[in-house]
Design a protein around this nucleic acid. Structure first.
Lengths: 330, 330
DNA sequence: TTGTATGCGTTATCAT
DNA sequence: ATGATAACGCATACAA
């Protein structure tokens, strides 16, 4: 392996000079700099960052923990994170937690072991307390999903308002019996979206029927089953709001298999505006989150924290948008 | 920051002993070991892996370069990679190249800079020569997509046979005018899938019509446009084979918007069996790759190379499967 | 402008 | 069974 010493010897200067050239530091004559660069090129030298990282006690790498890369919702967010990271000289390590707390803890070791300068959680599995502990020692940002109790920055939309708007859209189309496909989990977003649904009904003088709520697990199948159950049990239902696009798509599929046409016989609204939403048949009305901006903002927050050694706790709420497509409008 | 020295001082032993305990090495009395462990716990000590990595000149991390994490095709492959990695004490860094050669090269720096012990390419952008150079110095495996010329291991399916089988399925259903939605790229898989299409026609005595081939770019929209064009120009077409599920889904959408029902008026076959294939409306007939196994195999190959310092060039072909769903069978 | 020398945290070799 | 110490590759404070 070629090291900085080899380059120094070959160029006839000291390692300090090589280091200066590598890091674009001043105090090197143009002549020397050029000679060094040519030797670096000739020897095909690549600095060993293990040495640099140890010395500087930083890695210029950040961790992004996501429940599943297969979830298309995260794609644009990650892009935002990556773009801001790159602009600031940071690399991004994407890590699948599978919503498994052990796997999440495993990856968090990378943080504790100094292999990463900070972490962005897409949906933390660990509880408020553990999150708080980590937040006190390391740079941490929560993105989209977050724990309320923890004193850790987050960036997200207002899920309550977004859900309210989606259900109001259905009510505006004349629907009075609106099913809800929610999830049985502890996500704050879930709680907020359910609350928004109820508030929209209430504000429109429609009585809330708890039986109209079914619970899935964000999967296509669970959306399918939930819709199937709703349609079987309550013939009067003419619209369904699902708190995720994938479950909404499962619901549409269930409608068709029950002989109901969307949107003619039943209207469906999703949440997230994943890339498949406009591709589906029919295309899906849904709530769009500013995913790219969310990612950018999260990374910016993280970098600020890294620079300020953990200060700067901030919570940022970005704007959502209701996108109306074929699944609700005849 | 707590270091190994602090632990040593607190436990009243030398750093060497701490290191032995940390690495589960023999030559430490049970008594001492226990004392050390208790001190480690009490001080909440986390070993700084920057030191270890420099010393051992390895990181126990591998790079996985994918064109886009948003492509659902990669999800199961990555899971296979991760599972095998974890079993062997390796961490996985997922990196989005966006099919951008510069971004790809940027991430390859992590390899050259010793921040990663090896790399798995899902679809290399760099050419044979550059790939070869990297393969000579570092542990490299190509997964699914690969460059033929490069002397670098790969694992994939037989795309020629798979494509042949898919088209034969359509012919078996009585279709004689079969459109092909391919891609304009340099992927070997594309070439092989086109060749399989032609060979299937030929073997069945159906004349190949070059005009029946349209080119997309793996996107939904490109599939939509390609199908739209085919249907407009050639009313006799009753079936379309797309070399990716996403384009196939675009094609189905185009059929519906042209007033054609799938599969009643036209049959569609995709390729990859992404998670959305069974969810679509209608569900999609497609070629399934053993994605999880492909991922596992790639990672196993990579670990072998890391251990053998670059030896062990191997090419492995795994079995595919045609999955028949609603989009072809009435 | 350039060089010398120290240390980052760890592991591993060689003593004891 | 345990300890002292050199080394890994690099950046940097200080000297020249």
């Amino acid at each position: 392996m070629i090291t900085i010493k080899d380059v120094a010897k070959e160029a006839g200067v000291s390692v300090a000079t090589i280091s200066r050239v590598l890091n674009n530091k001043p105090g090197v004559s143009d002549e020397t700099r050029e000679k060094v660069l040519s030797v670096i090129k000739r020897l095909n030298y690549n600095p060993n960052l293990l040495g640099r990282n140890l010395r500087r006690m930083e890695t210029k790498m950040v961790l992004v923990l996501l429940p599943a890369i297969s979830n298309p919702f995260y794609a644009r967010i990650v892009k935002g994170i990556e773009d801001v990271a790159q602009k600031n000289g940071y690399g991004v390590m994407l890590c699948n937690t599978d919503s498994d707390i052990e796997r999440e803890r495993m990856y968090l070791e990378l943080l504790k072991n100094k292999l990463s300068d900070g972490v962005i959680f897409m949906a933390p599995e660990i509880d408020e307390e553990e999150l708080n502990d980590i937040g006190e020692k390391y740079a941490v940002v929560q993105c989209c999903e977050y724990k309320e109790g923890a004193n850790v920055s987050h960036v997200s939309i207002d899920n309550y308002k977004a859900s309210y708007k989606a259900v109001k859209h259905l009510i505006g189309l004349g629907h009075k019996h609106i099913g809800l496909i929610s999830c049985k989990n502890n996500f704050l977003s879930t709680k907020h979206r359910e609350a928004g649904y109820k508030k929209a009904l209430e504000d429109s003088g429609i009585e809330f029927n708890p039986c109209y709520i079914r619970h899935g697990d964000y999967s296509f199948k669970s959306g399918f089953r939930a819709a199937h159950g709703l349609l079987n049990d309550f013939k009067e239902i003419t619209a369904i709001f699902a708190i995720s696009d994938i479950m909404a798509i499962g619901a549409i599929k269930a409608c068709y298999e029950n002989g109901l046409k969307v949107p003619d016989d039943i209207a469906i609204v999703g949440f997230d505006n994943i890339s498949f939403a406009p591709m589906y048949n029919p295309s899906l009305t849904t709530v769009s989150q500013p995913k790219y901006d969310i990612g950018c903002t999260a990374m910016e927050l993280l970098i600020k924290q890294i620079k300020n050694k953990g200060g700067n706790k901030e919570n940022i709420v970005l704007e959502h948008e209701l996108i109306i497509r074929q699944s609700t409008v005849k």
